[in-house]
C-alpha cells in the first residue's frame, strides 16, 4: 500500500507546479472585502442621510404645528363658537316666548336675539380670518426654520454626494379620531338633549370634530367646531408627531390642527457606475392641544 502511494506520488510530481497562489487569493479576497466595505459604507451613509432628512422634516412639521394653535387661539375659538351657539339658541327661545306670550317684551327680546345673531356672524368671520392667519404663520415659521437647517445637509464624500433638500411642500389637515377640545355645555335642557344625539361623543362628553353644529331653529348660522386635542386631566397636550395613516385632509372649512411637510433630497453614490436617486421624507405633526373651557 505504501509502495502504491509512493509510485503515485512520483507520477504526480511530474505534472504539478511548485509555485503557490495564496497571494493571489488573498489579494482577490481583500479586494472583495474592500468592495463590500465600500458598499456597506454607502448603504450606511444612505441610511444616515435618510434619518437626517426624516428628522429635519419632523422638526419642520412640529414647528408648523406649534404655530397653528399658538396661545390656544384655535382652542379659544372652538370654545367661543360653542358658547355663541348657546347664546343664539337662548335668545331665540326668549324671543319666541315673548312673541307668543308677552307682547310687551317682544321688542326687547327681538333686539337681543338680533344682537346674538350678529355676534355669531362676527365670530364666523373671525374664525375664517384665524384660519388664514394660522396657516400663513405656520408656513412662514416652517420656511424660516428650513432656511436655518438646509445647509447642514449638504455632504460630499468620495462615494457619496448629498444635495441641499428641496423647499418643503406643506399641507394642513386634521387627525383622525381626535375630537374637539370643547366640553359639552349644559344648562339648557333642550339643547343638551339635541347635542347628545348629534354633536357630543358619549364617552368623552366632548363635541365631535369638524362639525357644523347648526341649531335646528336657525339654519342660516354656522357653528364650525374643529378637531383639536383636548387636555388630559387638565394637562394640555403638547404638539407631537403622528403616523401618516392618522392624517386626514381637511374636507370642510375647518381650522387645521395638523401640519404635513414633505421634502426631497438628491443623493449620488459613486460605487462603480454613478447612481443618482431622490429620497423623500414626510413629517406629520398635530398641534398643541386646547383647553376645555374658556
Amino acid at each position: 500500500m505504501i509502495r502504491t502511494y509512493e509510485r503515485a506520488s512520483r507520477a504526480n510530481k511530474g505534472n504539478r507546479s511548485n509555485k503557490g497562489n495564496m497571494l493571489v487569493l488573498s489579494g482577490v479576497f481583500l479586494a472583495l472585502l474592500a468592495v463590500l466595505v465600500l458598499v456597506a459604507c454607502s448603504f450606511g451613509g444612505l441610511f444616515f442621510v435618510f434619518n437626517r432628512i426624516q428628522t429635519t422634516t419632523d422638526e419642520l412639521a412640529l414647528t408648523g404645528a406649534r404655530k397653528l394653535n399658538e396661545q390656544d387661539r384655535i382652542g379659544q375659538m372652538n370654545n367661543m363658537i360653542a358658547r355663541c351657539r348657546q347664546l343664539v339658541y337662548d335668545a331665540h327661545e326668549s324671543h319666541t316666548y315673548a312673541y307668543e306670550n308677552a307682547d310687551h317684551l317682544n321688542q326687547l327680546a327681538e333686539q337681543l336675539h338680533e344682537e346674538a345673531r350678529e355676534g355669531a356672524i362676527l365670530l364666523e368671520a373671525e374664525r375664517q380670518k384665524l384660519r388664514t392667519v394660522a396657516v400663513n404663520e405656520a408656513k412662514s415659521a416652517i420656511a424660516d426654520r428650513y432656511n436655518e437647517l438646509k445647509e447642514a445637509h449638504a455632504l460630499v464624500l468620495p462615494w457619496l454626494k448629498v444635495a441641499i433638500p428641496t423647499t418643503p411642500v406643506v399641507d394642513f389637515g386634521c387627525a383622525k379620531d381626535i375630537s374637539s377640545n370643547v366640553a359639552e355645555l349644559k344648562g339648557i335642557d333642550e339643547l343638551e338633549t339635541e347635542d347628545s344625539k348629534l354633536y357630543v361623543q358619549t364617552d368623552s362628553h366632548l363635541y365631535k370634530e369638524n362639525i357644523d353644529a347648526k341649531i335646528s331653529s336657525d339654519s342660516e348660522l354656522h357653528f364650525w367646531i374643529s378637531s383639536l386635542p383636548a387636555p388630559v386631566q387638565s394637562t394640555v397636550a403638547p404638539a407631537r408627531c403622528i403616523l401618516a395613516k392618522q392624517y386626514k385632509a381637511l374636507m370642510h372649512p375647518d381650522l387645521p390642527s395638523v401640519c404635513k411637510v414633505e421634502m426631497k433630497l438628491g443623493v449620488d453614490t459613486g460605487i462603480g457606475a454613478d447612481a443618482h436617486q431622490e429620497m423623500k421624507a414626510t413629517g406629520i405633526a398635530v398641534a398643541t392641544g386646547g383647553e376645555k373651557v374658556l
Partner: peptide, 17 residues
C-alpha cells in the same frame, strides 16, 4: 350665566344654572 363681549358685541353665553 357667563356672557362674553367683544367691542360691546355679544359673542357667547354659558348657562350654569
Amino acid at each position: 350665566e357667563d356672557l362674553w363681549y367683544a367691542k360691546a358685541k355679544t359673542l357667547g353665553m354659558e348657562r350654569h344654572h
